[in-house]
Design a binder for these strands. Structure first.
Length: 420
RNA sequence: CGGGCCGUAGUAUACCGGUAGUACAAGUGCUUUGGGAGCAUUUAGACUGGGUUCAAUUCCCAGCGGCCCGACCA
């Protein structure tokens, strides 16, 4: 895409009402727009990142047998009353409203109830199970305090998968596979090195759960990391007997701040019992379905990547989720340079490369370089009088100081290797 | 939800009980073009409501909004 056609612009200064690094950089780069505290719109660049994250998650969910669907935002009060989660005293983050006829409806803050309720229509036999269903969805939560930019919003985009197994053994098997799938998601998103499987409390669902915690000072949680075991324990469950059961030694744990980028839960049979979701086994006996829940917030993941990987000059996107693979800059207004840059741009487009072409006129080299650093594409390709003298394109990795001159063919080879 | 800090233009600020000035940013034109260049020019502001007052952006009260700490957090 031509940058001159991109409607967003970069900003030199950070907005006054943001202090978190992720919001500052993403707003300065024109990735997101703040609507109000805890509510952000995703602009074209931001949406490209979100979509790439979405695709990584989709692929990983497919690998473990996940089936994608899309559930409604408006929630039926009756269903949530069955599990005692409609009452404001039980769940205080509901956004609630009324239909014209006066009926109460809620806006989705979670999904267990409606997934389980849908399944009642289609599951009756052991032959219908197991099922692993998920959706991507905007979730609304009336948080008393949103904070940290897109890390904790009142409206956010997430993926939730629910597993419906015939029994605990079958569930546990899937749960272990999801641990691997989640690890792969964070690895592919570029924060695998800083993300730890963390033993945590299970909230209202179960005694314990597993969180995927990424180390960052912007985090909300305190965890204790055991590098030897490549896992961690959340402060909330930091007790002697738990450490013993996990085989961890207290004196080898290191305290860190971290952000929960994913969370997996064993739910068990309580919701199916409340909602009447059961199946008949081989022996003709009725059993309740055994549930699990697996969530990832895509915006939070995006914000975490910014927090963890950015540097003093701006964002540093991993190739896997960068909005564009390469940022092509045309420097100066020399006609030959512009002609050459356009030609390269068209060739890259033709080759299917995601390229952002800074074809803006009247900007100094410094401005274009600074914008490229701020926007954070993995590769920068410069066409200028200088590069043309050397008969090539000057390419540089965002993470490296020095570039080199290559031909268009070589550039395509490098990018194709990365893109494919 | 408890606590703290804070609301003058996109940002940073100035003055002031007599209706607001500067810088940067942004727009336009020309010049420039390897790390946010120059000249000219334009646009843009007192969160809202009430009170006090001849007069409120300024003082008082309330509300709204923003950020942060804590609590909470499927």
């Amino acid at each position: 895409m031509r940058q001159s056609k991109l409607f967003t612009k970069t900003r030199k200064e950070a907005p006054a009402d943001e202090t978190s690094k992720n919001a500052e950089l993403l707003i300065r780069g024109g990735y997101i727009h703040k609507e109000m505290a805890g509510v952000y719109s995703y602009l074209p660049l931001g949406l490209r990142v979100l979509k790439k994250i979405e695709n990584i998650i989709r692929e990983e969910m497919s690998k473990v047998g996940g089936i994608e669907m899309k559930t409604s935002i408006l929630q039926d009060k009756e269903i949530w009353e069955k599990t005692n989660r409609w009452d404001d005293n039980e769940v205080d983050i509901w956004f609630k409203t009324k239909l014209k006829n006066g009926a109460d409806v809620g806006l989705s803050w979670s999904n267990e109830e409606n997934f389980a309720n849908i399944l009642k229509q289609y599951v009756s036999s052991y032959k219908d199970l197991p099922l692993y269903l998920y959706d991507f969805k905007d979730i609304l939560r009336n948080e008393v305090r949103s904070k940290s930019g897109i890390m904790r919003g009142r409206e956010f985009y997430w993926k939730a998968l629910y597993s419906f197994s015939r029994n605990e053994t079958e569930h546990n098997d899937f749960y272990e596979r999801m641990k691997v799938a989640y690890r792969d998601i964070f690895k592919r998103a570029g924060i695998g090195h800083a993300t730890y499987l963390t033993f945590a409390s299970g909230g209202a669902f179960s005694k314990y759960s597993h969180e995927f915690q990424t180390l960052t000072s912007a985090g909300e949680d305190t965890i204790y990391v055991s590098e030897d075991n490549a896992m961690a324990v959340n402060k909330e469950v930091m007790e002697e007997e738990i450490l013993a059961s996990l085989g961890l030694e207290k004196n080898k744990l290191v305290e860190h701040r971290a952000i929960e980028v994913g969370n997996i839960f064993t739910l068990g049979t309580s919701k199916p019992e409340a909602l009447g979701l059961s199946y008949v086994d081989k022996n003709g006996e009725k059993n309740h379905v055994f549930m699990g829940s697996y969530g990832v917030g895509l915006g939070r993941l995006m914000g975490t990547v910014v927090e963890v990987l950015s540097d003093d000059h701006g964002i540093v996107w991993p190739e896997s989720i960068a909005p564009f693979a390469v940022h092509l800059l045309a420097l100066g207004d020399d006609e030959e340079v512009l002609k050459e840059a356009n030609k390269i741009y068209e060739n890259l487009e033709k080759a299917g490369v995601d390229v952002l072409f800074d074809d803006r006129e009247g900007l100094s080299a410094g401005e274009k370089f600074s914008d490229a650093d701020l926007l954070g594409m993995p590769w920068r390709a410069v066409v200028s009088v200088r590069s043309m003298k050397e008969k090539g394109i000057e390419i540089k990795k965002r993470t490296e100081e020095k570039g080199k001159i290559v031909s268009t063919e070589e550039l395509l080879k490098i990018l194709n290797e990365k893109v494919s």
